[in-house]
């Protein structure tokens, strides 16, 4: 067991999958020599060589497109989009190829590609580096979308993603890259994609979040606990597929639910989760299901982030309102 940041945990996971499967290749902008702009792949080129860990041209569509060919012919590409905002250049490849290979070939081929990308705000980067647009990928049939919030989950989910047969968009909350540490096992382990994590059990209200927002959600949950509100905190971890049964089970118990996420509100993951709540727990609801999300605006410039990202206080306020409803 060793204390690691999320960057170290992902690096550790990449090292494990590169070691256990020689078909795994890792590439993207600055991924090789530099070890990635956030140093996620630091030291891996030295260890596994330039043929397995390498730099790509500044062409996201090319990165994704080449991965399709590699995957269809037996390799296991892990590709990096330097920031999620850059990945839009690769939409054509991701939407028209990556997500459809299995269906189009009637199951003869699959596209076991892991597309890693840092996402979200909170590090005072420019606006197109800071948005939280996971919903774009979650809306595409054929893709799994995973967002971890802890070093332990990041490692276990990434290993599961690489071992799987189908494409996974693996989004990494860069605000949490180094801002939390956790004792994790250095040996391999995996966490199945699609299973939410009940971070804390409670009986008054279910607080559902994921990724970067989990930091504030944890704080809010602690504060609420001190005020006598028993919060059940759930990290969904997998945006798609969504763990409907864990959500349903929890809300049938608590009767109240608040979803918190960083990205814009309209048509966002909050809406999807709350619809699931209605489906699974309608007859048990004590208060209207509610979401606390980002605003329907472009992610702000650094000086505005403080007003965009919800604070634990705001979450506690909403929790209280729902409990007292």
């Amino acid at each position: 067991m060793k204390n690691m940041t999320m960057v170290q945990a992902i690096n550790n996971a990449l090292e494990i999958v590169l070691t256990e499967n020689e078909k795994v290749v890792l590439y993207g902008e600055d991924v090789g020599v530099e070890g990635g702009v956030f140093r996620v792949s630091a030291g891996l080129q030295e260890k596994f060589g330039e043929k397995r860990v390498f730099d790509s041209p500044l062409a996201e569509s090319g990165i994704a497109g080449t991965a399709v060919g590699m995957a269809a012919t037996g390799l296991k590409p892990i590709i990096e989009m330097q920031f999620s905002g850059f990945s839009y250049h690769a939409f054509h490849q991701i939407i028209n190829q990556v997500s459809r290979i299995r269906n189009r070939s009637r199951g003869r081929h699959t596209a076991p590609i892991v597309i890693r990308m840092p996402y979200g705000g909170g590090i005072k980067a420019p606006e197109h580096h800071s948005e939280s647009m996971e919903v774009l990928y979650a809306a595409i049939p054929g893709l799994k979308v995973v967002i971890p919030s802890t070093p332990h989950d990041a490692k276990g989910l990434l290993i599961d993603a690489v071992r799987g047969e189908d494409p996974v968009v693996f989004m990494e909350p860069k605000r949490l890259y180094r801002s939390v540490k956790q004792e994790i096992q250095e040996e391999e382990y995996s966490i199945p994609i699609g299973k939410a994590s009940v971070v804390q059990e409670g009986s008054d209200i279910t607080l559902i979040s994921y990724g970067a927002s989990m930091k504030e959600a944890r704080k809010a949950s602690d504060t609420a606990q001190k005020k006598g509100i028993s919060v059940e905190l759930i990290d969904i971890r997998s945006i798609y597929p969504l763990d409907r049964s864990t959500i349903g089970e929890s809300v049938r118990k608590t009767g109240r639910v608040l979803v918190v996420h960083e990205g814009p509100e309209s048509y966002g993951p909050g809406a999807e989760v709350l619809t699931t709540v209605i489906d699974e727990a309608f007859l048990y609801l004590e208060a209207p299901p509610r979401r606390l999300s980002g605003f329907d605006t472009i992610a702000p410039y650094p000086q505005g982030e403080e007003w965009y990202i919800h604070t634990p206080e705001r979450i506690v306020y909403e929790l209280q309102r729902l409990v007292e409803y």
């Binding site: 940041t5 960057v7 702009v37 956030f38 140093r39 920031f83 909170g122 590090i123 005072k124 980067a125 420019p126 580096h129 800071s130 860069k174 605000r175 890259y177 180094r178 801002s179 939390v180 540490k181 650094p302």
Partner: peptide, 14 residues
């Protein structure tokens, strides 16, 4: 670490 933005390092309470 990080060439873009400022990533907050984990403190004692994190």
């Amino acid at each position: 670490f990080g060439v873009v933005g400022t990533s907050a390092p984990a403190g004692k309470d994190d």
